Amino acid sequence: MNDRAASVFENYEIEILRILKGRGALLGETQEGWLILKEYTGPATRLEIQEKLLEAVKENGFSRVEQLKRNKEGELISYDQDRVPYIVKTYFEGRECNLKDVRECQSAARTLGRLHKAMCQPGIARDYDVPAFCMENEYVKHNRELKKVRRYLREKSQKTEFEIYLLHHYDFFYEMALSAAEELQEYTADFDEEKIREKGNFCHGDFQYHNLLFTQGNFSVINFEKYMLDNPVRDLYLFLRKLLEKNSWSVSLGLNIFTAYETERSLTDEDRMQLYYRFAYPEKFWKIVNFYYNNGKAWIPGRNREKLENLLKQEAEKKNFMNNVLK
């Protein structure tokens, strides 16, 4: 970010003592604490709901959560001289969650359980007519995309080494994706969008170690821009998947995280069913394919091949985890 971005702070009734560069953002120190300035590309209406949600979460007892700041004109979005939109939020000094520390990960899971209780806001969901997220619809959409890319690969005359390797293993994961989506249809009534909206359970949407800051013995949670109405296990799944991929899908570690989460929020049979099918669907494979297809294909990073190889190596460990912990 440049000096023009830093000038956006002038739109707020705050005195900036110093400015530091962060990851794709600027940090401004004030007498009341740190603020963060970030570009914002979403709709203004979604930001209004985010503000209400974060305020409600804090009022509901979860205080270690960021808050949006309004500028001098009372707006949530400010612009630099090039009309680039920015938002300003409160920020917590601290380090990211350490995925190699089991106790710290357990603490993060307990934090998530407390956060989910505070994010149950049926009033906000109703008053702002927030659309609910449907896991079945997401997987059907993903499967259409996978089918499209498979056809593209098969019809391509000259294939790179990566494309040959990808196509060789494609059907294994594609059939897995189709099977997960088909089995999930049996439980559509339990995962109905209207039912999700009535419950009013909001999710963080991107609950991973980057967005967990450890400071003064506790975790603070940041970056709620991907919030959504969905079953809360969406966040638990993402946190667990990232953690287990780095720890050979350890059954004992997974059970420890579940136990820690349930000290704050109990998992229902529906929650466990959702978790099972989230893990059953080959989301990581879809991400590799999606990245490949939607980026320049003239040069394909070797990291893509490495990710696919690791995915194949870990498949047996993942199945073992699912059978011993979720089924």
Results as ranks from 00 to 15, higher is better:
residue 32 E to P: 00
residue 79 Y to S: 00
residue 151 R to L: 15
residue 250 S to N: 07
residue 306 E to A: 14
residue 203 C to I: 07
residue 186 E to K: 12
residue 103 R to E: 15
residue 101 D to K: 07
residue 162 F to A: 08
residue 49 I to T: 05
residue 80 D to S: 02
residue 248 S to E: 15
residue 135 M to Q: 13
residue 315 E to F: 08
residue 153 L to W: 03
residue 20 L to R: 15
residue 210 H to K: 12
residue 322 M to N: 05
residue 152 Y to D: 03
residue 95 R to C: 07
residue 194 E to G: 11
residue 46 R to D: 07
residue 55 E to T: 10
residue 167 L to F: 08
residue 22 G to S: 01
residue 63 S to Y: 05
residue 105 C to M: 15
residue 116 H to M: 00
residue 127 D to F: 11
residue 165 Y to T: 03
residue 99 L to H: 08
residue 8 V to R: 05
residue 260 A to L: 07
residue 196 I to W: 14
residue 87 I to M: 05
residue 24 G to R: 10
residue 9 F to K: 00
residue 312 L to M: 06
residue 20 L to S: 14
residue 8 V to M: 09
residue 99 L to W: 04
residue 173 F to M: 01
residue 45 T to F: 14
residue 271 D to V: 04
residue 140 V to C: 09
residue 174 Y to R: 09
residue 121 Q to N: 07
residue 229 L to S: 05
residue 297 K to E: 14
residue 212 L to V: 01
residue 252 S to I: 10
residue 312 L to N: 00
residue 60 N to S: 15
residue 262 E to L: 08
residue 99 L to M: 06
residue 119 M to T: 03
residue 112 L to T: 02
residue 199 K to R: 15
residue 46 R to G: 14
residue 149 V to C: 04
residue 8 V to Y: 01
residue 13 E to I: 08
residue 29 E to W: 04
residue 283 E to H: 11
residue 253 L to F: 03
residue 216 Q to I: 11
residue 247 N to V: 00
residue 236 L to C: 00
residue 182 E to T: 13
residue 58 K to W: 09
residue 130 V to W: 06
residue 67 Q to W: 06
residue 149 V to R: 01
residue 256 N to V: 07
residue 324 N to C: 11
residue 326 L to K: 00
